[in-house]
Amino acid sequence: MGYLKNLYHDRNIIMQLAKNDFKVKYLGSYLGVFWAFVHPITMILIYWFVFTVGFRTMPIDNVPFVLWLIAGIIPWFFISEATSSGSSAILDNSYLVKKVVFRVSVLPIIKIISALFIHIIFILIAFGVFLFYSYPITIYHLQVLYFLFASIALVYGISLITSSLIVFSRDIGQIVSVLLQFGFWLTPIFWSFAIVPFNLQLFFKLNPIYYIVEGYRNTFIYQRWFWEDPLLTIYFWVVTIIIIGIGTILFKKLRPHFSDVL
Protein backbone atom coordinates (compact mmCIF):
# COMPACT_ATOMS: atom_id res chain seq x y z
CA MET A 1 0.00 0.00 0.00
CA GLY A 2 2.90 2.30 0.74
CA TYR A 3 4.30 1.70 -2.73
CA LEU A 4 0.92 2.44 -4.33
CA LYS A 5 0.72 5.67 -2.34
CA ASN A 6 4.17 6.64 -3.62
CA LEU A 7 3.07 5.94 -7.18
CA TYR A 8 0.03 8.14 -6.71
CA HIS A 9 2.18 10.87 -5.17
CA ASP A 10 4.61 10.76 -8.10
CA ARG A 11 1.90 10.29 -10.75
CA ASN A 12 2.58 13.60 -12.53
CA ILE A 13 6.30 13.07 -12.97
CA ILE A 14 5.73 9.43 -13.95
CA MET A 15 3.30 10.42 -16.70
CA GLN A 16 5.61 13.19 -17.91
CA LEU A 17 8.59 10.85 -18.08
CA ALA A 18 6.47 8.21 -19.82
CA LYS A 19 5.42 10.75 -22.46
CA ASN A 20 9.03 11.83 -22.93
CA ASP A 21 10.14 8.21 -23.27
CA PHE A 22 7.45 7.61 -25.87
CA LYS A 23 8.54 10.67 -27.89
CA VAL A 24 12.25 9.82 -27.69
CA LYS A 25 11.66 6.39 -29.26
CA TYR A 26 10.62 7.99 -32.54
CA LEU A 27 12.60 11.21 -32.34
CA GLY A 28 14.31 12.10 -35.60
CA SER A 29 12.23 9.86 -37.88
CA TYR A 30 10.04 11.45 -40.53
CA LEU A 31 7.03 9.26 -39.80
CA GLY A 32 7.44 9.47 -36.03
CA VAL A 33 4.94 7.47 -34.00
CA PHE A 34 3.62 5.85 -37.16
CA TRP A 35 6.53 3.38 -36.91
CA ALA A 36 5.06 2.05 -33.67
CA PHE A 37 2.23 0.56 -35.73
CA VAL A 38 4.16 -0.57 -38.80
CA HIS A 39 5.86 -3.63 -37.29
CA PRO A 40 2.81 -5.04 -35.45
CA ILE A 41 0.46 -4.49 -38.37
CA THR A 42 2.99 -6.00 -40.77
CA MET A 43 3.27 -9.10 -38.57
CA ILE A 44 -0.50 -9.48 -38.44
CA LEU A 45 -0.78 -9.18 -42.22
CA ILE A 46 2.04 -11.68 -42.79
CA TYR A 47 0.54 -14.29 -40.44
CA TRP A 48 -2.90 -13.71 -41.89
CA PHE A 49 -1.61 -14.17 -45.44
CA VAL A 50 0.56 -17.22 -44.65
CA PHE A 51 -2.06 -19.11 -42.68
CA THR A 52 -5.17 -18.04 -44.57
CA VAL A 53 -3.89 -17.94 -48.15
CA GLY A 54 -0.83 -20.21 -47.94
CA PHE A 55 -1.95 -22.92 -45.51
CA ARG A 56 -5.65 -22.26 -46.15
CA THR A 57 -6.40 -22.23 -42.43
CA MET A 58 -10.12 -22.58 -41.80
CA PRO A 59 -11.98 -20.34 -39.33
CA ILE A 60 -11.29 -21.46 -35.77
CA ASP A 61 -14.51 -22.14 -33.81
CA ASN A 62 -16.39 -20.47 -36.67
CA VAL A 63 -14.41 -17.27 -36.07
CA PRO A 64 -12.52 -15.69 -38.99
CA PHE A 65 -8.82 -16.40 -38.53
CA VAL A 66 -7.86 -12.71 -38.67
CA LEU A 67 -10.13 -11.94 -35.69
CA TRP A 68 -8.85 -14.93 -33.75
CA LEU A 69 -5.28 -13.83 -34.48
CA ILE A 70 -5.82 -10.18 -33.55
CA ALA A 71 -7.38 -11.08 -30.20
CA GLY A 72 -4.32 -13.15 -29.28
CA ILE A 73 -1.46 -11.19 -30.76
CA ILE A 74 -2.40 -7.73 -29.45
CA PRO A 75 -1.69 -8.58 -25.78
CA TRP A 76 1.55 -10.26 -26.86
CA PHE A 77 2.73 -7.07 -28.59
CA PHE A 78 2.26 -5.17 -25.34
CA ILE A 79 3.87 -7.81 -23.10
CA SER A 80 6.84 -8.19 -25.44
CA GLU A 81 7.45 -4.46 -25.89
CA ALA A 82 6.91 -3.61 -22.22
CA THR A 83 9.19 -6.42 -21.04
CA SER A 84 11.98 -5.48 -23.45
CA SER A 85 11.85 -1.77 -22.67
CA GLY A 86 11.23 -2.36 -18.95
CA SER A 87 14.38 -4.47 -18.76
CA SER A 88 16.47 -1.51 -19.91
CA ALA A 89 14.64 1.03 -17.73
CA ILE A 90 17.56 1.70 -15.40
CA LEU A 91 20.23 1.71 -18.12
CA ASP A 92 18.22 4.14 -20.25
CA ASN A 93 17.74 6.51 -17.31
CA SER A 94 21.12 6.17 -15.65
CA TYR A 95 21.32 9.95 -15.16
CA LEU A 96 18.35 9.75 -12.81
CA VAL A 97 20.03 7.00 -10.83
CA LYS A 98 23.45 8.66 -10.52
CA LYS A 99 22.79 12.37 -10.16
CA VAL A 100 19.24 12.91 -8.91
CA VAL A 101 17.40 11.94 -5.75
CA PHE A 102 14.79 9.88 -7.52
CA ARG A 103 12.58 6.91 -6.71
CA VAL A 104 14.31 4.47 -9.06
CA SER A 105 11.70 1.74 -8.56
CA VAL A 106 9.24 3.69 -10.75
CA LEU A 107 11.49 3.50 -13.83
CA PRO A 108 10.05 0.16 -15.03
CA ILE A 109 6.55 1.60 -14.57
CA ILE A 110 7.49 4.53 -16.82
CA LYS A 111 8.55 2.14 -19.60
CA ILE A 112 5.38 0.10 -19.19
CA ILE A 113 3.16 3.18 -19.41
CA SER A 114 5.07 4.27 -22.51
CA ALA A 115 4.27 0.91 -24.16
CA LEU A 116 0.71 1.15 -22.89
CA PHE A 117 -0.04 4.19 -25.08
CA ILE A 118 0.27 2.09 -28.24
CA HIS A 119 -1.47 -0.90 -26.70
CA ILE A 120 -4.59 1.12 -25.90
CA ILE A 121 -4.77 2.28 -29.52
CA PHE A 122 -4.47 -1.33 -30.70
CA ILE A 123 -7.30 -2.34 -28.38
CA LEU A 124 -9.47 0.37 -29.94
CA ILE A 125 -8.46 -0.88 -33.39
CA ALA A 126 -9.45 -4.40 -32.35
CA PHE A 127 -12.89 -3.13 -31.29
CA GLY A 128 -13.25 -1.49 -34.70
CA VAL A 129 -12.24 -4.63 -36.61
CA PHE A 130 -14.64 -6.80 -34.62
CA LEU A 131 -17.45 -4.32 -35.20
CA PHE A 132 -16.62 -4.40 -38.91
CA TYR A 133 -17.15 -8.17 -38.81
CA SER A 134 -20.51 -7.64 -37.05
CA TYR A 135 -19.32 -8.66 -33.57
CA PRO A 136 -21.20 -6.32 -31.20
CA ILE A 137 -19.72 -4.77 -28.07
CA THR A 138 -21.07 -6.52 -24.96
CA ILE A 139 -20.64 -6.33 -21.21
CA TYR A 140 -17.93 -9.00 -21.49
CA HIS A 141 -15.64 -6.44 -23.09
CA LEU A 142 -15.34 -4.66 -19.74
CA GLN A 143 -12.99 -7.35 -18.54
CA VAL A 144 -10.37 -6.19 -21.02
CA LEU A 145 -9.49 -3.75 -18.22
CA TYR A 146 -8.91 -6.69 -15.87
CA PHE A 147 -6.60 -8.48 -18.29
CA LEU A 148 -4.84 -5.21 -19.03
CA PHE A 149 -4.15 -4.83 -15.30
CA ALA A 150 -3.01 -8.47 -15.14
CA SER A 151 -0.59 -7.84 -18.01
CA ILE A 152 0.85 -4.75 -16.33
CA ALA A 153 1.30 -6.59 -13.01
CA LEU A 154 3.11 -9.52 -14.67
CA VAL A 155 5.37 -7.32 -16.79
CA TYR A 156 6.18 -5.07 -13.84
CA GLY A 157 7.34 -8.03 -11.75
CA ILE A 158 9.49 -9.35 -14.58
CA SER A 159 10.92 -5.88 -15.26
CA LEU A 160 11.94 -5.43 -11.63
CA ILE A 161 14.04 -8.58 -11.90
CA THR A 162 15.53 -8.01 -15.35
CA SER A 163 16.17 -4.27 -14.97
CA SER A 164 18.05 -4.94 -11.72
CA LEU A 165 20.22 -7.71 -13.15
CA ILE A 166 20.97 -6.05 -16.49
CA VAL A 167 22.86 -3.28 -14.69
CA PHE A 168 25.45 -5.87 -13.65
CA SER A 169 25.33 -8.03 -16.78
CA ARG A 170 24.32 -6.71 -20.19
CA ASP A 171 23.82 -10.33 -21.29
CA ILE A 172 20.47 -10.26 -19.47
CA GLY A 173 19.06 -8.17 -22.31
CA GLN A 174 19.96 -10.87 -24.83
CA ILE A 175 18.54 -13.57 -22.57
CA VAL A 176 15.27 -11.66 -22.31
CA SER A 177 15.08 -11.45 -26.12
CA VAL A 178 15.62 -15.21 -26.45
CA LEU A 179 13.04 -16.00 -23.77
CA LEU A 180 10.51 -13.74 -25.50
CA GLN A 181 11.07 -15.71 -28.70
CA PHE A 182 10.37 -18.94 -26.81
CA GLY A 183 7.34 -17.34 -25.20
CA PHE A 184 5.93 -16.31 -28.57
CA TRP A 185 6.08 -19.81 -30.02
CA LEU A 186 4.97 -21.59 -26.83
CA THR A 187 1.91 -19.37 -26.41
CA PRO A 188 -1.17 -20.14 -28.57
CA ILE A 189 -1.07 -16.83 -30.39
CA PHE A 190 -1.43 -17.95 -34.01
CA TRP A 191 -2.04 -21.66 -33.36
CA SER A 192 -5.02 -23.24 -31.62
CA PHE A 193 -4.55 -24.72 -28.17
CA ALA A 194 -6.90 -27.52 -29.23
CA ILE A 195 -4.10 -29.15 -31.25
CA VAL A 196 -2.02 -29.75 -28.11
CA PRO A 197 -2.22 -33.35 -26.80
CA PHE A 198 -4.16 -33.54 -23.55
CA ASN A 199 -1.18 -34.80 -21.56
CA LEU A 200 0.84 -31.71 -22.57
CA GLN A 201 -1.82 -29.04 -22.06
CA LEU A 202 -0.91 -28.48 -18.40
CA PHE A 203 2.68 -27.69 -19.45
CA PHE A 204 1.52 -24.91 -21.78
CA LYS A 205 -0.89 -23.54 -19.18
CA LEU A 206 2.02 -23.03 -16.78
CA ASN A 207 3.03 -20.12 -19.01
CA PRO A 208 1.33 -17.09 -17.36
CA ILE A 209 1.08 -15.33 -20.73
CA TYR A 210 -1.28 -18.11 -21.84
CA TYR A 211 -3.78 -16.85 -19.26
CA ILE A 212 -3.68 -13.32 -20.67
CA VAL A 213 -3.84 -14.31 -24.35
CA GLU A 214 -6.76 -16.65 -23.75
CA GLY A 215 -8.34 -13.96 -21.58
CA TYR A 216 -8.33 -11.48 -24.45
CA ARG A 217 -9.90 -14.12 -26.70
CA ASN A 218 -12.52 -14.91 -24.07
CA THR A 219 -13.26 -11.19 -23.92
CA PHE A 220 -13.50 -10.48 -27.64
CA ILE A 221 -14.70 -13.81 -29.02
CA TYR A 222 -15.96 -16.45 -26.59
CA GLN A 223 -17.67 -14.12 -24.08
CA ARG A 224 -16.40 -15.97 -21.04
CA TRP A 225 -15.65 -14.33 -17.67
CA PHE A 226 -12.24 -14.77 -16.08
CA TRP A 227 -13.74 -16.22 -12.90
CA GLU A 228 -15.13 -19.12 -14.91
CA ASP A 229 -11.54 -20.48 -14.86
CA PRO A 230 -10.91 -20.19 -11.11
CA LEU A 231 -7.89 -22.52 -10.88
CA LEU A 232 -6.11 -20.83 -13.78
CA THR A 233 -6.89 -17.38 -12.34
CA ILE A 234 -5.56 -18.34 -8.90
CA TYR A 235 -2.44 -19.87 -10.46
CA PHE A 236 -1.76 -16.76 -12.54
CA TRP A 237 -2.00 -14.39 -9.59
CA VAL A 238 0.06 -16.62 -7.31
CA VAL A 239 2.83 -16.75 -9.93
CA THR A 240 2.57 -13.00 -10.60
CA ILE A 241 2.70 -12.10 -6.91
CA ILE A 242 5.72 -14.37 -6.42
CA ILE A 243 7.48 -12.72 -9.37
CA ILE A 244 6.70 -9.24 -8.00
CA GLY A 245 7.91 -10.32 -4.56
CA ILE A 246 11.19 -11.69 -5.91
CA GLY A 247 11.62 -8.59 -8.06
CA THR A 248 11.01 -6.25 -5.13
CA ILE A 249 13.49 -8.03 -2.85
CA LEU A 250 16.11 -8.21 -5.59
CA PHE A 251 15.63 -4.57 -6.53
CA LYS A 252 16.01 -3.40 -2.92
CA LYS A 253 19.18 -5.43 -2.41
CA LEU A 254 20.83 -4.26 -5.61
CA ARG A 255 19.59 -0.65 -5.61
CA PRO A 256 22.47 0.74 -3.46
CA HIS A 257 24.99 -0.54 -6.02
CA PHE A 258 23.36 0.83 -9.17
CA SER A 259 25.14 4.17 -9.20
CA ASP A 260 28.55 2.56 -8.62
CA VAL A 261 28.17 0.15 -11.53
CA LEU A 262 26.60 2.68 -13.89
Rank of each mutant, 00 (worst) to 15 (best):
Y3H: 12
N6E: 15
L7E: 13
M15L: 15
N20I: 11
K25A: 13
K25T: 12
Y26G: 12
F34A: 15
P40I: 08
M43K: 11
I44P: 03
L45G: 00
V50C: 00
F51Q: 01
T57G: 01
T57L: 08
P59N: 02
V66H: 09
I70W: 12
F78S: 11
I79C: 05
T83W: 12
S85E: 13
S85F: 11
G86P: 09
Y95D: 15
V97E: 05
K98T: 08
K98E: 07
V104F: 09
L107M: 05
I109H: 13
I109Y: 14
L116N: 07
L116K: 10
I118W: 14
I121F: 12
L124A: 08
I125S: 11
G128S: 04
F130C: 02
Y133L: 01
Y135M: 05
P136E: 09
P136Q: 08
I137E: 02
I137R: 02
I139C: 07
I139P: 00
Y140G: 07
Q143A: 08
Y146G: 07
L148Y: 14
I152G: 06
Y156I: 04
Y156C: 06
Y156T: 06
I158S: 07
L160H: 10
I166C: 12
R170V: 12
Q181F: 05
T187C: 01
P188C: 04
I189W: 04
F190M: 08
F190H: 00
N199E: 06
F204S: 02
L206E: 00
N207V: 02
P208M: 01
I209W: 01
Y210P: 04
Y211R: 09
V213A: 11
G215K: 10
R217T: 06
F220H: 09
Y222G: 09
D229V: 15
L231Y: 14
I234G: 10
Y235T: 11
F236D: 01
V239C: 06
I244K: 10
I246D: 01
I246M: 12
G247E: 05
F251N: 06
F251V: 08
P256E: 04
H257W: 13
H257M: 14
S259E: 05
